[in-house]
Design a protein around this nucleic acid. Structure first.
Length: 572
DNA sequence: GCCGTTTTCGGCCCGACTGTTTTCAGTCG
């Protein structure tokens, strides 16, 4: 685990590297800074406690960076960074985050065309002047505009994992004056959606006016919230987080209909628009007052549906059967597939990853480093695969109660082929096929490409199917129905990539995959030991689509998995 | 800027795509 306190140094070095990039500094120098950041991230000690003489001996950190760290300790910032921050406008630095814009292009905008803010860039796209600038064109303008709009639309949204921190902060703050049991988080957060744009919390304080006033005053005075005066009323306090403008709603409904309100704010639109007795659920609950959520289930004669699954996908069948299956829980996972080590772009060694899995109580790890065409990630050449396999075999002996599966995350090339010959692919116990390059494809081409990979007899699992990165880029368009059908037909497991930044397969397709009989695997795609526990976010996604332990590949025992892989290989 | 030397300077990952340009630079994964 890295030390949180070291973040101040890595943040500054990262910022400095970005500024140097804009200055056109030697790319190898920039890489040196990034290696230093990775080295600091790996440290298990606080840099504050180390003297200069020790810091400069750390691998990837030399005299120059060690001195910058020392100066930061003393003055809070090193002078080279301070100078550049005065020279380069913040808006220009921000442009580095825009897809399609690199240092060279940004310099044309800044130096030759006096662009210093994102707003100016947006306006230039809107009035078609960006395309007139030498080095830019119609297509580039369109791409930049699209990316700017995408970022604007996502600016006040958070990943579920990040929203958790703020949800807890608000609940803690409310509990200073309200009994904990009366505070109920609802909305997107309670449904465990992948992206949160509003944190909604109910406070069940009856109709006690004094208490309400006290609560409103408490919220008004909160130092991490900003009140929205227009939005705030009798039954709701509205505002946003100071830090990132995420919307916050604190609801104080009438006691006699708090059950109706909680239900209404704990289900997706598709669920609420379902017709029951000639009216939508939404209409029923708007008219009927229930003071307990469970009364709503009684009224509709529904079994209790777990909140995550109130989305209008999997639950209707359960209602019909009057029985809800036991949805998957994190404790039922017996092992991990899809993790990287220092053989490719992971931060921890293979043995460290193994030990971390053992410590978390898992029985096996399916290690999957990157394949050879992932140059940027130090992908494995066949010769290095052999070395890794030897290490796996010796680790199997060293840890006899744990099992390591030999896997690979093989790149799906442009034409749908995997990037090794068959005689290399057959040396793995299993193969995850993923797309990492050439992400701009038509739906037709992307679907064809991915189905060809699914049909490859070596493919065991499909990795992050759409390639999306939440809040950063959409995935390539896919005919997911066809993809799921191809997986069913070819006995290919679909991964739910549990990284909170991906969560791909999207939960809206989980139910469909289960219907078609496809197995799903909750995979952390870990690049370090610290993110193995992110499988819990993948479990949330599975539950939203009705996933049970039975349909989850990595709830199987080691022996069952060995048999499964052996059977798959028999068909080669 | 770091590293590792055949020790103080040369190498550090690279291939493909994209969109501009008019033969290739810039960006990305």
């Amino acid at each position: 685990m890295s030390f949180m306190e070291n973040k101040i140094f890595t943040q500054q070095i990262k910022q400095y590297a970005a500024l140097l990039e804009l200055k056109g500094e030697n790319p190898f120098k920039l890489r040196a800074y990034h290696f230093a950041i990775e080295a600091i991230d790996r440290l298990e000690v606080n840099l504050m406690d180390l003297p200069l003489s020790v810091i400069e001996k750390i691998g990837s950190i030399g005299k120059a960076i060690a001195l910058k760290i020392e100066e930061t300790k003393e003055k809070g910032i090193f002078h080279q960074l301070k100078n550049l921050l005065e020279e380069i406008p913040a808006g220009v630095v921000e442009m580095l985050g825009i897809n399609g814009l690199g240092a060279k292009k940004i310099n044309i905008l800044w130096k030759e065309n006096k662009f210093t803010t994102i707003t100016q860039l947006l306006e230039a796209c809107e009035n078609n002047t960006l395309a007139q600038i030498k080095g830019f064109g119609e297509k580039m303008q369109a791409n930049i505009y699209q990316d700017l709009l995408f970022k604007q639309a996502n600016s006040a949204k958070l990943f579920f994992s990040k929203a958790t921190i703020y949800q807890q902060m608000i609940v803690d703050y409310l509990s200073q004056i309200i009994d904990n049991e009366l505070i109920i988080t609802t909305g997107q957060f309670r449904r465990k959606l992948e992206i949160i744009d509003c944190l909604q919390i109910f406070v069940a304080i009856d109709d006690n006016k004094t208490k309400k006033n006290q609560l409103v005053q408490h919220l008004d005075e909160c130092n991490f919230l900003i009140k929205n005066k227009q939005g705030t009323g009798m039954f709701v306090w509205r505002g946003e987080l100071k830090e990132n403008a995420l919307k916050v709603e604190i609801k104080m409904p009438q006691k006699n209909r708090i059950g109706s309100e909680i239900y209404l704010h704990s289900a997706g639109e598709k669920h609420l628009t379902k017709i029951e007795k000639n009216k939508t659920i939404l209409q029923h609950l708007t008219e009927q007052n229930f003071n307990k959520e469970s009364d709503v289930f009684d009224y509709f004669k529904y079994p209790i549906i777990p909140v995550e699954a109130r989305e209008g996908y999997a639950e209707w069948k359960w209602i019909e059967d009057k029985k809800v299956p036991n949805l998957l829980i994190t404790n039922e996972l017996k092992g991990i597939f899809h993790a990287h080590s220092t053989y490719s772009d992971g931060k921890n060694t293979l043995e460290e990853m193994v030990l971390a899995c053992i410590n978390l109580g898992y029985d096996y790890l399916g290690i999957t480093d990157h394949s050879q065409s992932a140059f940027y990630a130090n992908g494995l050449q066949p010769s290095r695969i052999k070395i890794q396999h030897q290490e796996i075999e010796s680790l199997r002996k060293k840890y006899p109660n744990f099992y390591i599966f030999k896997g690979i995350e093989a790149d799906i090339l442009n034409d749908g082929q995997l990037d090794y010959e068959d005689d290399v692919l057959k040396t793995f116990d299993f193969v995850i096929a993923s797309i990492h390059s050439n992400l701009k494809m038509s739906e037709e081409k992307a679907t064809e490409r991915i189905i060809k990979a699914i049909e490859n007899p070596h493919t065991t699992m499909l990795g992050h199917s759409t390639g999306r990165v939440l809040l950063r880029r959409n995935g390539y368009p896919l005919d997911m129905k066809k993809v799921i059908e191809a997986c069913a037909k070819n006995n290919v497991i679909i991964e739910i990539n549990a990284s909170p930044y991906r969560l791909d397969l999207d939960w809206r397709w989980v139910h469909e995959a289960l219907e078609k009989g496809v197995l799903l695997s909750i995979n952390p795609d870990s690049h370090e030991t610290g993110t193995l526990s992110e499988v819990k976010y993948g479990v949330n996604i599975g539950r939203k689509g009705g996933l049970t332990a039975e349909k989850t590949f990595n709830t199987k025992t080691t022996e069952e998995i060995i048999t499964y892989f052996a059977n798959k290989k028999r068909k080669l």
